[in-house]
């Protein structure tokens, strides 16, 4: 555990809490892509199956349970409790364009051809692109509420901080995982455009509105 890794994890938890609180307080999930949230739930489900097979630390197990429970809660709030506020029409990204390539890639490029390892690899690949339906929704409506922007910024920062963690671990512990690094780089690149808008607009108190 190093400072980048811890900061990354905290940013990740923070992002999820922001989102849950926003939905709960406003009693609405307007502007949030349910498809991205379902994909994230799938990411955690396929990655944290090892909760039952391998014990790393109390910290790891607790965080895994937090991610599983909070993503489950988010999906429940969006598709059951506050279903009426879910903006179907703007959430039109075709998820099969993400799921099919991730399944194929995880079958082809993995560390070991076992069920657990392929599922882990699938979750890593899927996580890197799971935000696309949300970014697509923002680009379609041309704007995002500031709370949604804070959520996206925290969620994007998490993987960027993990990149620093991997650089640190490579030099200090000689530990590296090419699949995670490759997917992490892709994931962070997808947020770059958003980071730019967030820093130039949202932090200056303006709404995040895309140029027409």
């Amino acid at each position: 555990m190093n400072v980048f890794r811890l900061a990354g994890d905290l940013a990740h938890v923070f992002a999820i809490i922001i989102l849950l609180l926003k939905i709960w307080k406003t009693r609405s999930c307007a502007g949030i892509s349910g498809k991205s949230q379902v994909l994230f739930a799938l990411v955690y489900l396929t990655r944290y199956l090892d909760l039952f097979t391998t014990y790393v630390s109390l910290y790891n197990s607790v965080m895994k349970v937090i991610f599983l429970a909070s993503s489950g809660a988010t999906v429940y709030l969006m598709y059951v409790k506050f279903k009426a506020t879910y903006d179907h029409n703007h959430d039109s990204f075709r998820v099969e364009f993400l799921l099919v390539p991730c399944v194929l890639l995880s079958l082809l490029i993995n560390h070991d051809f076992t069920v657990m390892e392929v599922l882990w690899t699938f979750s890593i690949y899927l996580e890197s692109v799971a935000i696309l339906p949300q970014l697509f929704m923002v680009s379609k409506t041309g704007e995002a509420e500031s709370i949604t922007s804070h959520y996206l910024f925290a969620l994007g920062s998490y993987r960027a901080l993990y990149l620093l963690n991997w650089i640190y671990r490579y030099f200090v512990e000689s530990h590296y995982d090419l699949i995670a690094i490759f997917a992490g780089v892709v994931q962070t690149i997808l947020y770059c455009d958003f980071f730019y808008l967030y820093i130039t607009k949202v932090l200056k108190g303006k709404r995040l509105q895309l140029p027409a």
């Binding site: 890794r5 994890d9 990740h12 391998t54 895994k64 991610f67 070991d112 390892e117 530990h175 995670a180």
Partner: peptide, 10 residues
């Protein structure tokens, strides 16, 4: 012999 792939991250 191949070492098992370590997954200590989230």
């Amino acid at each position: 012999c191949k070492e098992p792939h370590i997954k200590d991250e989230l």
